[in-house]
Write a protein that binds this DNA or RNA. Sequence first.
DNA 1: CTTGACCCTGGAGTATACTCCTGGGTCTAG
DNA 2: CTAGACCCAGGAGTATACTCCAGGGTCAAG
Lengths: 139, 139
Amino acid sequence: MFTIGKLASLTSVSNDTLRYYEQEGLVEPAGKSPAGYRLYDKDSARRIHFIKHAQNCGFTLAEIRDLLVLRGRDKACCGDVRTRAIEKKLQIEHKIRAMKAMSKALDQLIAECANETQPVKECTIIAALERANVSMEMR
Amino acid sequence: MFTIGKLASLTSVSNDTLRYYEQEGLVEPAGKSPAGYRLYDKDSARRIHFIKHAQNCGFTLAEIRDLLVLRGRDKACCGDVRTRAIEKKLQIEHKIRAMKAMSKALDQLIAECANETQPVKECTIIAALERANVSMEMR
DNA sequence: CTTGACCCTGGAGTATACTCCTGGGTCTAG
DNA sequence: CTAGACCCAGGAGTATACTCCAGGGTCAAG
């Protein structure tokens, strides 16, 4: 069991952020000290890592909370989680395609702009980005 | 030449958003009507598409403005754009790796949770996400 | 028994990217 | 010549995800 500052440094988030997550229903301390200090355990750290990872991958805090709540409900069916997972996977795949197109466009730009003294007008970044045909319907 | 509503529907953004972009220095109308209506041309539409695409790929409006401003400066060297492009490419590659890990974790989840009536506790989404080893230092 | 590091709550402030509202002018079809 | 659709500026409001602050309690070391 450790206090908030410890968990904060273990997970590289701030005390404030941890309290904010608690307020938003994402993490509960494992317990409280007699003085009212939040006390956390290893599981809390795993939960924070989970949150950060999921966030990194494009889940919002609300979505993450949903997943965490589902996990908590013994009666919830796998199907619920599965549906969400499939939905999210499609979103992620879409985003990956967009990012790959962007990456390619950047590659081209980097290659073609090797001449450092050439004026920008000759650069192809804008053309490359305009060419890249990725749908716009993403958030 | 067409008015703001036309451009809005052509590019699937709202009138308000277009005015906001103008305010933020991202798009100028090609001209104004005698009554003060904004008038746009095809280039405006291309610019909006560029903005939306770049945004979709993780550029912030500030970064996009920088790129657009650079394009406008005849004297700017290709090197400036190139440096930004390389930086952004690294960020994008990092993000793509994270998303791929997430996608894989989701695949696994979807496969393992094929039994729709299985309780969530048996699901592996959290485990999968916790296993996925993607660095946390991303924004 | 005090000092400094740490913790608490509650609330305000920040950045980004919109989104909506008020109160008014313009334009086109019937 | 009027109704309805569209445009304007300026400013307030929203959502997300923090971040900071005030005012005060707690705890371990010396």
